[in-house]
Amino acid sequence: MTEQQTADSYNFAYLDEQTKRMIRRALLKAVAIPGYQVPFAGREMPMPYGWGTGGVQVTAAVIGPEDTLKVIDQGSDDTTNAVSIRNFFAKTAGVPTTDKTAEATLIQTRHRIPEKDLREDQILVYQVPIPEPLRFLEPRETETRKMHALEEYGLMHVKLYEDIARHGHIATTYAYPVLVNDRYVMDPSPIPKFDNPKMNDMAALQLFGAGREKRIYALPPYTKVKSLDFEDHPFVIQKWDDICGMCGADNTFLDEVILDDVGSRMFVCSDSDHCNERQAAGHRGPQNGDASYTPEAAE
């Protein structure tokens, strides 16, 4: 034993080859049956459930030495989850990492789709907490499996209808259910419904991994993905009255940031790479003064 564990102590990308084969077979079946959840023998990973163990296993089975990896958590490259997963693969696979969407060949994401259109040579891997869209309506796996087999999705429409009856509109704002290739109702993972339209007809391959629930599913490129709705209550995405305070974008998903304890706030792009790129190109939002922010100047 050496004193310090090094990356050489692990197989490439941490997982053993037999585990990778099992995941790879599940991935291929998932791609062949778009939107269907393929069970897989999810392994214990060196991180707790809820931190992306499903996405990490999918990434580990897919990633190769030629890949460049980007990891985002709610659009940001520099939050704990994203940084730790990026470091995990930098250490165990020795691959280059990036925070630029355009430079990545493999992007693992928690709960966002990058604002920039993805290309055919890119793969997007989603971390999924609860893969079964019908789970909160029907807790029994034996029943949900049968409902998918029979294409029995009336219950989901009843749920959306109840939203309308109670709130006057469909109140689901994230993990908004989609119908894939006119066949399977699928949970898009807890992305904001703002991102749902990006899944439709995307040029990149989209893979989904749920570690605790041990399910893998996929969307091949150019697959029809439709958000469920009604003719008189069509699907709409979120809109903001504000624009991004940093880059001035009016067409991105915005996070609200509380600035002090007297109610000041700003909205800023959730996709940090997209926002930085716009700022570097000279775009400025109303709260992005060239003078740095100081409490004195704000008074």
């Binding site: 197989n11 990778k20 190769g64 091949p220 490129p221």
Partner: peptide, 17 residues
């Protein structure tokens, strides 16, 4: 590890397209 990854990525690419 490296060679099976190459072959898998080829199969994944073919199955996706």
């Amino acid at each position: 590890a490296a060679e099976s990854n190459h072959v898998f990525r080829a199969v994944l690419d073919a199955m996706s397209r």
